[in-house]
Simulated scan of single mutants.
Amino acid sequence: MTTDRATATAWVREVAADRWDAALAARGFTRAAAALVYSRKVADDGRQRLHLDLSVRHGEFQLSPRATVAFPSIAAEATRLLGPSAADKSGVVDMELLDILDPGSPMLLFGTRDDLTALPVERYLLAPMVPWLDERTTVAAVTEAVRARADRHPGNPGRFPVIVAAGELAQGNPGGALATLERAYPEGSPGRTEYAAAFDEVRALAPGATPEPPPPAALSYQLTTANSLVGVPVPNPGPDQLERVVRRLNEERFYALLERSDGVYAQVGFGPKSGAAPGAYALEHRAGVHLRADTTDPDAAVRFLQRFRAGDDTWRDGHEWRRLEL
Rank of each mutant, 00 (worst) to 15 (best):
T7A: 09
W11A: 00
W11P: 00
V12Y: 03
V15S: 08
A17C: 14
W20D: 11
D21F: 13
A23Q: 02
A25T: 12
T30N: 10
T30I: 13
R31F: 04
A32C: 03
A34S: 08
A34F: 05
A35I: 00
A35T: 01
L36W: 02
L36I: 06
Q48D: 01
R49E: 05
L54Q: 04
L63R: 04
P65S: 07
R66Q: 07
R66N: 04
T68M: 13
T68V: 15
T68G: 11
V69C: 14
A70P: 03
F71S: 04
F71E: 00
A76Y: 04
A78C: 06
R80K: 11
L82R: 00
G83L: 07
S85N: 02
G91L: 07
G91W: 05
D94A: 01
I100L: 15
D102E: 07
M107G: 11
F110G: 05
T112R: 14
D114C: 12
D114N: 15
A118T: 13
L119S: 14
L119Q: 14
R123N: 10
Y124D: 04
Y124M: 12
M129R: 02
W132F: 15
L133H: 02
D134P: 14
T137A: 12
V142N: 00
A145C: 08
R147F: 09
D151G: 06
R152D: 15
H153V: 05
P154A: 03
G155L: 10
N156M: 10
G158E: 08
G158A: 09
G158Y: 09
E168D: 02
L169E: 00
P174Q: 06
G175W: 07
G175E: 03
G175R: 11
G175A: 07
T180S: 03
E182T: 06
A184W: 04
E187N: 01
S189Y: 03
T193V: 12
Y195C: 02
A197E: 04
F199D: 00
F199A: 00
E201F: 15
R203M: 13
A204C: 10
A209E: 15
T210D: 13
P211F: 05
P213H: 07
P213C: 10
P215M: 13
A218P: 13
Y221V: 06
T224M: 07
T225D: 06
A226L: 08
V232T: 10
P233S: 08
P233H: 09
V234P: 01
N236L: 10
P237F: 02
G238F: 12
G238P: 10
G238K: 04
D240V: 11
Q241T: 15
Q241H: 10
L249P: 01
E251N: 12
R253F: 15
R253W: 14
F254A: 09
A256D: 01
E259A: 04
D262K: 00
Y265Q: 03
Q267M: 11
G269F: 10
F270Y: 14
G271K: 03
A280K: 04
A280N: 07
A280G: 01
Y281Q: 07
E284C: 02
H285D: 09
G288E: 02
G288Q: 05
L291M: 07
R292L: 09
T295G: 02
T296E: 09
D297V: 11
D299R: 12
L305C: 01
L305F: 12
A310E: 09
T314K: 13
G318S: 06
G318N: 08
H319G: 03
E320M: 06
E320N: 12
W321E: 05
R322C: 05
R323S: 11
R323E: 11
